[in-house]
């Protein structure tokens, strides 16, 4: 049975955007079964901007699953923003998983983080600052592995802000790849198994990629898509 996944990221809503984004989502409940939002919901990560996100995305008629992005952490209000989304009946993943659509779909993930890609990445060595940077990503990947393995659903998706592969970064300067994602995120998904990884963060990147283990990756950052959201169908023929 087909599941239609709508996905977008990097919407960067500020208080100026209040009341303007909702029109892009009209009719989404007829086009998709679930909406995934891949982080950078806000510009500065303030509670006020978080409220704009809540108001623009609530009561769409389908489950809405968010992860936060680096912008949403900027004002140290990330926990509050996540709580506001949950209070409004939506989901906010924090290295956790949710079961949706009567057990047909599991979504695991969180913000993710950087570090780079195999052969060209930082490692946990040297100064404490360097170790902390890489350890943050490794610990996230470990939590995703556990979250994914706990999902006994027909399909499993990983939702992230940072990229798990470099293919979907094509178009960005290669020098900044270590700040755009980490192969550790892909490695976790490949080890635990998933049907799709959705991410954002790389505005100048490319929509389509694949992990070394063969999981499809989609960069749904709004500037990459150029459309309100992408729709991916899992588990069946085109409708």
């Amino acid at each position: 049975m087909t599941i239609r996944i709508a996905a977008v990221g990097d919407i960067h809503l500020s208080e100026h955007a209040r009341g303007t984004y909702r029109a892009h989502l009209d009719g989404i409940d007829e086009r998709a079964d679930v909406l995934l939002v891949a982080g950078d919901l806000t510009r500065h990560g303030t509670v006020e901007e978080g409220q704009v996100v809540v108001d623009e995305f609530r009561d769409l008629g389908i489950p809405v699953v968010f992860v936060l992005g680096n912008h949403d952490y900027h004002s140290d209000a990330e926990q509050e923003i996540a709580a506001m989304l949950r209070t409004a009946g939506m989901y906010a993943l924090d290295d956790s998983a949710e079961v949706l659509l009567d057990g047909r779909l599991g979504v695991a993930g969180g913000k993710g983080f950087g570090g780079g890609f195999a052969g060209k990445c930082a490692s946990e060595f040297g100064e404490p600052e360097t170790k902390a940077f890489v350890r943050h990503t490794r610990e996230i990947a470990d939590r995703w592995r556990i979250a994914l393995k706990g999902l006994d659903t027909d399909h499993r998706i990983v939702l992230s802000h940072y990229s798990p592969v470099k293919e979907t970064l094509a178009g960005e300067p290669p020098e900044i790849y270590p700040f755009l994602g980490s192969y550790l995120l892909a490695e976790a998904a490949d080890a635990a198994g998933a049907d799709l990884i959705v991410h954002g963060h790389a505005h100048a990147g490319t929509e389509k990629g694949v992990t070394p283990g063969g999981i499809r990756v989609r960069n749904v950052a709004l500037p990459v898509l150029g459309r309100a959201y992408a729709i991916y169908c899992l588990g069946g023929e085109e409708l």
Partner: peptide
């Protein structure tokens, strides 16, 4: 520019 959702992709 935020366009219409467009075609769906079957994976």
């Amino acid at each position: 520019a935020v366009g219409e959702p467009g075609e769906q992709e079957v994976l």
